[in-house]
Design a protein around this nucleic acid. Sequence first.
DNA 1: TAGATTGTTAATCGATTAACAATC
DNA 2: TAGATTGTTAATCGATTAACAATC
Lengths: 239, 239
Amino acid sequence: MSIMLKFDPIPSEETEPSDLGPVSSKEKEKVPTPTLERLTTYLRCVIDLGASGMETVSSAQIEEHTGISAAQFRKDLSYFGEFGKPGVGYNVPDLESRIARILRIHQMQPIILIGAGNLGSALLRYPGLEEHRFHIVASFDTAPNKIGKRLQDMDIVDFSRLREINSALKARMAILAVPALAAQGAADSAIESGVRAILNFAPTLLRVPSHVIVRNVSFVQELAVLSYHLAQSDSEDYS
Amino acid sequence: MSIMLKFDPIPSEETEPSDLGPVSSKEKEKVPTPTLERLTTYLRCVIDLGASGMETVSSAQIEEHTGISAAQFRKDLSYFGEFGKPGVGYNVPDLESRIARILRIHQMQPIILIGAGNLGSALLRYPGLEEHRFHIVASFDTAPNKIGKRLQDMDIVDFSRLREINSALKARMAILAVPALAAQGAADSAIESGVRAILNFAPTLLRVPSHVIVRNVSFVQELAVLSYHLAQSDSEDYS
DNA sequence: TAGATTGTTAATCGATTAACAATC
DNA sequence: TAGATTGTTAATCGATTAACAATC
């Protein structure tokens, strides 16, 4: 008799909701990455509209300002609930704060910077980060001629002290702006110090535990895609 | 009797090849953007393998080094012809030169830089660009305290001279590293001077003629996506 | 020849677009 | 109420994955 079986002999596909308590009754639908990427664009847009005094915005106006279609915008938001009023549109300040909250940039996010070379110091001085509440709280390098120097209003710290320092700072995001050969080692140390999300500028595959997220940025890749299309449109000129 | 029918009476979907002359008999299949983006990763990989003396590589080994699946690699290459030998693999130097040629980075690509601030000067000093034969041939800015200063081995030139200068240089790619409010104007001037591909670092929608290609880079976007996933994995910890 | 690995086709998966009932 | 605009469903489109015949 199956009544004896405390556990289902045929494992069900769906895991039982279990007792998550009152949290999120809505079954978590996975949000597509392109949707997440567009969220920053919407946020930027509503911040600007808000600054210009606009109180309400329609999806059609969002399309006009961002180049992303109204349908796409509505679909993207739908992953996170209801935001607007039919016939009216979206409240600008409300939309801003809700998107910021989804991305967890409604409050300051501490980030550590590894690699204080050209790119690293440019990022440190880039005002866009602070505007979006990303705050670089420490920067590390291995070069003796850099260690101890001040950059913005921070000392550049010896990379070997990363773990010690981040045990106090508890930053969970790191920007990796080091040469390719140093990237894996830098990532390993960062992860050991508690980092769980890495923005990697080195053209290298980082091997990380499954609980760590990596995103790669490559200028060369961007230029190469442009270069390809440029050549394509040249050859079309002959047709 | 079907023997009479020289042509299928039901018109076929495919358009007739028409007389494109001897150029590209293979009908141009549109290459997906993700494929183009991965091409740089493959190139980087085969350059490294070549430097380490490897002569032949299989798609399985590419997967091992890049994290991109062997099937994906083969599918990606298939848009551009046949590259390997069944049972053997791909010749490393050959693969390198063919990918470089597809991306048109087998020969030097002149680029102009607009905006010689933190980010702009970091890009100018970034060795990866030259390694991939992207060569910044001029840099422009509007700030009087920057104009005339030397950066790498180049003078920073007054932005108002962009058109004049690029009529000689004939660069068709531009990197835009200016504040958001200056971006559209900078793009307009660049396009007027002959630029047809723009790498835009400003968080702004650029409005450009249809023959001009734009790619946008946003650090904030990348960090925001990381931030979202970080928050997600936190909430999973409670389950 | 036997084993390995390609290039390609078909099946799957996922994202975008279009359309519209619900509702302000 | 009539007009506008949302949120969502269904249809379309496109990219990835899996499988395998071809071939070295």
